[in-house]
Amino acid sequence: MPTALPHLPTSRLLLRALQMDQAEVLYRLANGPKIADNTANIPSPYTLQTAQDFITGIAEKYRAGEVLNLGMHVQATGELIGMVSLRLNARHHAGHLGGWVAAHARNQGYAAEAASAVMDFGFATLGLQRVGSQCFGRNKASARVMQKIGLHYEGCLREAFFKNGVYEDLLTFASVRSDWERAL
């Protein structure tokens, strides 16, 4: 596995690790509407200290083979609009996609563009056999993103996640290497 964090350009985005001077922006965006509500691990409220700790750990967690976390930056302006991640499982040669887009940048295809680039990196560069993801059953936008990038619906894990006092259904999607190769 490469030890240097990648910079992944797409048609409209540059996916790259965050720098500490972006902590304020990350803090502001991650506190946006629906971010914590639609994700499994983002706390609410999201504090400046949480943002700083997250940025500090990006390189170390990638070098340890745990997770690739990249900021979604609009190429034309450099503006940070969200995060995309690939949580790695070296034993099973698998990755789990995650991410979020700031409220003002939603419904413009950025999530699919970023997730597709990270999925390609996982298969092509990291040699993964499987890339998957999950979303809450009520999160139809995330389910559409997963299908748009070629992940196949595998099923619903009923009431599998306890969030904010409610048992949530998890929709599961994935592609294996042969699916990805056929789509090239």
Rank of each mutant, 00 (worst) to 15 (best):
residue 11 S to P: 10
residue 11 S to Y: 00
residue 11 S to Q: 09
residue 13 L to S: 02
residue 15 L to K: 00
residue 15 L to N: 00
residue 15 L to S: 03
residue 16 R to F: 09
residue 17 A to V: 08
residue 19 Q to F: 12
residue 22 Q to A: 15
residue 22 Q to K: 15
residue 22 Q to C: 13
residue 23 A to P: 09
residue 25 V to T: 14
residue 25 V to H: 06
residue 26 L to I: 07
residue 26 L to S: 04
residue 28 R to V: 13
residue 30 A to S: 13
residue 32 G to N: 04
residue 35 I to T: 08
residue 36 A to W: 02
residue 37 D to P: 08
residue 38 N to P: 03
residue 38 N to Y: 12
residue 38 N to T: 14
residue 40 A to T: 13
residue 41 N to L: 12
residue 41 N to C: 10
residue 45 P to Q: 15
residue 46 Y to Q: 14
residue 46 Y to S: 01
residue 47 T to A: 05
residue 47 T to H: 04
residue 48 L to R: 08
residue 49 Q to F: 01
residue 50 T to A: 14
residue 51 A to T: 11
residue 52 Q to C: 14
residue 55 I to F: 10
residue 56 T to F: 03
residue 58 I to K: 03
residue 59 A to E: 15
residue 59 A to V: 12
residue 60 E to H: 11
residue 61 K to W: 11
residue 64 A to Q: 13
residue 64 A to K: 12
residue 65 G to Y: 06
residue 66 E to H: 12
residue 67 V to A: 10
residue 68 L to M: 08
residue 68 L to H: 06
residue 69 N to T: 13
residue 69 N to L: 14
residue 69 N to W: 15
residue 69 N to K: 13
residue 70 L to H: 06
residue 71 G to S: 05
residue 72 M to Y: 01
residue 73 H to I: 04
residue 74 V to F: 06
residue 75 Q to Y: 10
residue 78 G to W: 00
residue 78 G to M: 00
residue 78 G to S: 00
residue 82 G to T: 01
residue 83 M to Y: 00
residue 84 V to L: 10
residue 87 R to W: 02
residue 88 L to D: 04
residue 88 L to A: 05
residue 89 N to P: 06
residue 94 A to F: 07
residue 95 G to F: 05
residue 95 G to T: 02
residue 96 H to Q: 09
residue 96 H to C: 03
residue 97 L to Y: 02
residue 99 G to W: 00
residue 101 V to K: 08
residue 104 H to Q: 14
residue 105 A to Y: 04
residue 106 R to M: 08
residue 109 G to E: 05
residue 110 Y to I: 02
residue 110 Y to T: 04
residue 111 A to M: 15
residue 112 A to Q: 01
residue 113 E to Q: 07
residue 113 E to P: 03
